[in-house]
Design a protein around this nucleic acid. Structure first.
Length: 634
RNA sequence: GGGCUCGUAGCUCAGCUGGAUAGAGCACCUCCCUUCUAAGGAGGCGGUCUCAGGUUCGAAUCCUGACGGGCUCACCA
């Protein structure tokens, strides 16, 4: 409709305005709720051309449009706004179109290029936490939204299965895990623990043990005892200790943490872990076996968590594979002059012309860094999927700089697709003030499994209170609780703009009233119950007009198509969530103000059923885009 | 210190390609189940849109600066 009006105005601009007008001066906006109208044209831009008041301009344009376009019933100019009223026939036709299209709002599958969406990408040394939940739900949802926009989508992750952090867990397990009577160490089987939890436990133990060792070292340093330490360490520490003299509290704590950092590097534990990493890179059989064993425990644990989250992947990448590709690419880039080598034989990317500090891509000992493997992974992916149009990296905003650099390096290496790589950067999930920051090493995380289970229990309690679950089997009840709990959690994490940080108080339970998942799920269940009770078919037969409550729903339904597009181009599930909330609110208002099943006029009843049916359809589709399921009953 | 980013009601958030009286939810206060699921609906209370300038017919929205928060600038990942 907007384009019809625009076209009419442009084609008749000479007659109307006496001159050609620019397309951008034709601006539409939503009509205010308290004014009559379906669409509003802003008339301020025409005031200068017509040299009259905004209202006069509106009246003139309004008269023309009412005359020129059939679907326009009337127009009213208020201040600088021309409110256009469209005919009921127009809206009836729109509803008919929505109703007949089972995939309304979605583009034809595979009609757009292939896109890869990376999300989750955990380290294999610790369990998934709240931050991962936001990451996974966001990545999964964006993938679904892109599919709805016609893209072919490959869901993937890069598993950080290599590096010093894994060796820490391995070493701690080898050293501190208790032996049973047959001389065996703890396993997921022997303890009944989820594999990722068991490995994570030893990661924490490692950190604890290393810290206490570091503490001893520091106290001996403070006593002036530097036996067994390198001369340059001794000199540096002495310099730092001396520099504390006369400083304020804040500066001292800064210096102390520097000393602590040095001490940690001197612990036998950390040095043993480093040694283990070297052995791993050398494919030492014993270390390699331990590595595969402990990783497999973690994967088993992750699988359960992903299953509960309702997310999945089409293709997995492992850092232990791609870091080698990355090293080759560094060698290649070195020969092409993209990188340069320093005297200590470390390799760097020169980014001075971009105004960024040079970036290390290979350590002086020849081992790979984070950047090395990410370059390798990207190239590997384009090799696997030659028709790939772009990669979307769902990674927290603390890595904004990393991805900026990564994409630059890929560009410098000559990959034209580099400009199609996109960092879907989302804000951190923060704990309320005073609770500190989530850190796995310190055990101050909100565990993903625990949180999901808590919210399911909460959903269970609420559902039992309301009681619409008579006649359900225990299994059905349990899956309903999961559906509601996880729906609530997903909606809670997705309704906020991904770019913004999000405050989460683990002490307070997640709200399930108001703008929430269950609010929307409930509306869906209520419609389904209504439809189940009705005996006749829904239809638009004989309908000639709408009540305001009905029309506002039709308008909102029609907008779904554009919202899906916007959510795709903005990578924002939040747009879908907010849209659906608005739709459901309008429906609830309608539901309470008119009767449906008990309406005596058959045609009216059939139309309201059709309206309800389509609200349920769109709610179900839009929630599907968020990974939220909707129940038939609740 | 440099870069990026955020600052809207007591709290959590919409609105941000400039447009009418800045919207929701929670919390608090009223009402509404002998109509289809009250996890609902109707209403009330609550705002110098951090501050100061600028651009404009018009600024929460764009620009500049200040203040405050977060992230980042590692031979960690």
């Amino acid at each position: 409709m907007e384009s019809t009006i625009k076209k009419a105005l442009l084609e008749n601009s000479e007659a109307l305005f006496g001159t050609a007008i620019e397309e951008k001066s034709i601006q539409f906006q939503k009509t205010r709720k308290d004014v009559e109208g379906d669409l509003t044209l802003v008339t301020f831009p025409f005031v200068k051309i017509l040299r009259c008041s905004p209202v006069d301009a509106g009246n003139k344009i309004g008269a023309f449009l009412t005359d020129a376009i059939d679907e326009i019933d009337s127009c009213e100019a208020i201040n600088g706004f021309l409110n256009i009223v469209l005919s009921d026939a127009y809206w009836i036709n729109k509803l008919d179109l929505v109703s007949k299209d089972t995939r309304f709002g979605f583009s034809a599958p595979d009609s757009k290029p292939t896109v890869m969406v990376e999300y989750s990408s955990p380290n294999t040394n610790k369990p998934l936490h709240l931050g991962h939940l936001r990451n996974n739900f966001l990545g999964y949802s964006v993938a679904e939204i892109l599919k709805a926009n016609g893209h072919k989508v490959v869901k993937t992750q890069i598993i950080n299965d290599r590096g010093i952090h894994i060796c820490k867990s391995m070493l701690a397990w080898e050293r501190f895990s208790p032996l049973d009577e047959s001389g065996k160490r703890e396993t997921p089987e022997s303890t009944g623990m989820k594999g990722d939890k068991l490995v994570g436990k030893y990661y924490v133990i490692f950190d604890k043990e290393m810290n206490s060792e570091a503490k001893e070292i520091i106290s001996s340093w403070e006593e002036g005892n530097f036996d067994g330490f390198d001369a340059d360490v001794e000199a540096e520490v002495k310099r730092l200790i001396a520099s504390k003299e006369g400083k304020d509290e804040k500066a001292i704590s800064g210096i102390d943490s520097k000393i602590k950092e040095i001490a940690k590097n001197q612990t036998s534990l950390l040095n043993d872990a480093k040694e283990m990493l070297v052995k791993w890179e050398g494919r030492d059989p014993q270390v390699y076996l331990l590595w595969t064993t402990m990783n497999s425990w973690v994967y088993d644990g992750f699988e359960k968590t992903y299953d509960m989250m309702g997310v999945d992947f089409d293709k997995l990448y492992y850092e232990s594979d791609t870091f080698l590709i990355g090293k080759d690419l560094v060698a290649e880039g070195l020969s092409k002059g993209v990188f340069y080598k320093k005297e200590d034989s470390s390799v760097w990317a020169d980014l001075a012309d971009e105004g960024i500090d040079d970036k290390l891509v290979l350590r002086s000992d020849g081992t790979a860094v984070y950047m090395t493997q990410d370059v390798g992974t990207a190239v590997d992916r384009y090799k696997d999927y030659p028709d790939l149009d772009g990669i979307i990296y769902t990674v927290g905003n603390e890595q904004d700089h990393h991805f900026k650099v990564l994409f630059l390096i890929l560009k410098k290496l000559g990959y034209a697709w580099a400009h199609n790589c996109f960092h879907l950067s989302y804000g951190m999930v923060e704990l309320p003030k005073g609770m500190g920051r989530m850190k796995s090493r310190e055990g101050t995380v909100v565990d993903a499994d625990d949180l999901m289970e808590d919210i399911i229990v909460q959903a269970q309690e609420m559902t039992q209170e309301r009681g619409h679950i008579d006649g359900m089997t225990d299994e059905q009840k349990r899956s309903l609780y999961e559906l509601i709990g996880l729906g609530g959690l997903k909606y809670y994490l997705l309704k906020v703009d991904p770019k913004k940080k999000l405050v989460f108080d683990p002490g307070e339970s997640i709200e399930l009233n108001g703008n929430t998942g269950p609010f929307i799920q409930y509306a869906h269940a209520r419609i389904k119950s209504l439809l189940a009770k009705s005996e006749e078919e829904s239809s638009l037969e004989g309908v000639t007009s709408f009540l305001p409550e009905e029309k506002s729903i039709v308008k909102q339904l029609v907008e779904f198509e554009q919202v899906v597009k916007d959510a795709g181009s903005n990578h924002s599930p939040a747009l879908i969530a907010n849209y659906t909330y608005e739709l459901v609110k309008q429906y609830n208002h309608f539901y309470q103000s008119v009767t449906i099943l008990k309406e005596e006029n058959t045609q009216l009843r059939a139309m309201r059923l059709l309206l309800s049916e389509n609200v349920a359809k769109v709610v179900s589709m839009s929630m599907g885009l968020l990974g939220v399921n909707v129940p038939e009953r609740m």
